[in-house]
Design a protein around this nucleic acid. Structure first.
Lengths: 339, 339
DNA sequence: AAATTAACTGCAATCGTTGTCAAAAGCGGT
DNA sequence: ACCGCTTTTGACAACGATTGCAGTTAATTT
């Protein structure tokens, strides 16, 4: 690799001058500058970011930990973050915790040793402890995405989960459904709590009593969604739900398969709404009614916020931003059968 | 941040001893070692990777550039790479070229300045030039994924595109189809070339003349797939294909929509096979017959190969590994209608 | 023409870590 | 008590880039 000394030799100046010519061009004489720039170009010089970071005590690095890079929601989130980071000259270290707290802890350690200037994270169940253990956490701004860990002083960019869920369930109610089941996620995750709360509020507002048997845990995963859906649809006829609200798209995929395996038809036999939009939700037959989240915007906004936090060095107190969801009514919801 | 000098002070030893206690424990006396380790633990010391990298002239960093992180295939690829990298103590810098050569060039530059020890890349149309311009490329092992750029000396991990495509088309032929259309990707991309070649071979082996009008370019994207499919299915009846082979899943999504918009039914009116398996291909009705690729394995294997290349410092000559595809026959293919 | 100022450049120290070298300390044997 | 040996430790110099300070030259003013 070409280093600054090589360029200096080629341009017949000192390393200091090369450095200045490249980073503070107006401090060096025009001819010298030209000579240096040309030499640098010719040799293909690229400043070593390790050395620069060490000297300037800044890495221009951000850490991003998502909980499932294979889920389109998270991939989109990551893209938003990266695009925003790039705009401001930051690089992003992307990790995938797979919802596993141990992995998250390991990656946080690893990340820390690379001196990131800020951290963006989709927290898992143990994030709060992990962040407490991180020494540098006090100095480094942290933004949580999609969910919160409850760590004090941390910023977050989320969506209106309660409202979004409520609108989805109200849609079902307006179609005439009364027995509406919910497949929820891990109760420790705030999105699961909030979406369940929205479900509760919608029922309450419509004067429908909450039946605990109609709420099943799908643990945020496809298999869990499958199992939870089977459980709900195998209830004896009078209690069996005529519509299902599912907490995220992974579980919704399981739900669709469970419904098919039971030989039921959507929406004739059962209506289905899910949080989170995906390609398959649009392409499946019938297209799925969903609560769409602005995933890209969440990532982008979170990163913008982080960068602006880094600009003003005063460590602002934690603020929570919430973006709106949109209920996309497609063809998986209809009036309940009259029997 | 705690640095080595802080630990040294706390443990009453010199910085050198701290460094040794942490990295070469058997070179320091047991009691001293304990004292140092405890001080380090207590202070939450994390070695600064920037400084270490600078001093040791190694970054333990790998670069990964994929061409579309939102596509499940690429996300899975990335996961495979990361998992393998983590196993060997490497970090991965992930970038997304969005198939745009300029972005790729920019990221390659940016990456280079972080001193990666190796590079994994899903090449775009201009990768060959970009790599030629990279000074460090000579010293740094490079592995291409999914496609090749044709850069001499570069390693690659690909799939059996010709064979996979051929099997898919042979499947259609065995069902009785004779007019089979193909929606292909950008011709500069090797996967598109190879899959087209497989299509040709299958037709030839069955004694079916190739009709150029049955091959349409979908440019690797959903919209392109939509347009190409419309074009093929609007051919006058005698030439119109009874089956379609689509070069990747993005274009397949477009194809499905085009078919629906034309009011045709799969597989009664038209059979459909696509390269690349996805969640929606499994969930759509009817489930799509596909040529599945071992995406995770490609990433994992590529990274393993890269690491082993780094271990043995002799720069081995470029080798190409090809993994097998699997034809998953589902319900989007059937005998052609007799009319 | 001398004095003052401005513009430009180089020296040397620095960031945190590691490896080399040599000094110091401990040990057993004579 | 002294010698040679091993074990343990610390001082110091890098790695590559940046920057405060000081020095040199040229330009401007008196």
């Amino acid at each position: 690799m070409i280093k600054i000394a090589d360029v200096a030799r080629a341009a017949q100046v000192s390393p200091s001058t090369v450095s200045r010519a490249l980073t503070k061009p107006d401090l060096v004489a025009p001819e010298t500058r030209e000579r240096v720039l040309q030499a640098a170009r010719q040799l293909g010089y690229q400043p070593n970011k390790l050395a620069r970071g060490l000297r300037k005590q800044q890495s221009r690095l951000l850490g991003l930990i998502v909980s499932d890079i294979l889920a389109p929601f998270h991939a989109t989130l990551a893209k938003g973050v990266q695009d925003a980071a790039e705009k401001h000259g930051y690089m992003v270290f992307l990790f995938n915790s797979d919802e596993q707290p141990e992995k998250e802890a390991r990656y946080l350690q690893e990340l820390q040793s690379h001196w990131p200037e800020g951290l963006l994270i989709v927290p898992t169940a143990k994030t709060r402890q992990h962040l407490r253990n991180l020494r540098s956490a006090g100095s480094m701004p942290i933004i949580e995405l999609d969910r919160t860990s409850g760590t004090p002083g941390v910023h977050a960019v989320l969506v209106e989960n309660v409202l979004g869920a409520r609108e989805a369930v109200e849609h079902l109610i307006s179609l005439g459904h009364r027995r509406i089941g919910m497949v929820t996620g891990e109760p420790v995750i705030t999105t699961a709590q909030e979406r369940l709360e929205g479900y509760r509020q919608a029922l309450k507002a419509a004067g429908i009593a909450l039946d605990e048997r109609l709420v099943a845990n799908g643990y945020h995963k496809e298999e869990g969604g499958y199992a939870a859906t089977l459980q709900l649809l195998r209830l004896p006829a009078p209690e069996r739900p005529t519509a299902l609200f599912v907490g995220n798209s992974e579980m919704a995929a399981g739900a669709v398969q469970a419904i098919r395996d039971l030989g039921l038809r959507i929406p004739e036999d059962i209506s289905l709404v899910s949080f989170d939009d995906t390609r398959w939700a649009q392409l499946m037959e019938p297209a799925l009614t969903v609560v769409a989240q602005p995933a890209y915007e969440i990532g982008y906004l979170a990163c913008e916020t982080l960068v602006s936090l880094l600009r003003q060095k005063a460590p602002a107190e934690g603020r929570i931003l919430r973006l709106k969801t949109r209920l996309l009514i497609r063809h998986s919801t209809a009036r309940p059968r009259e029997d």
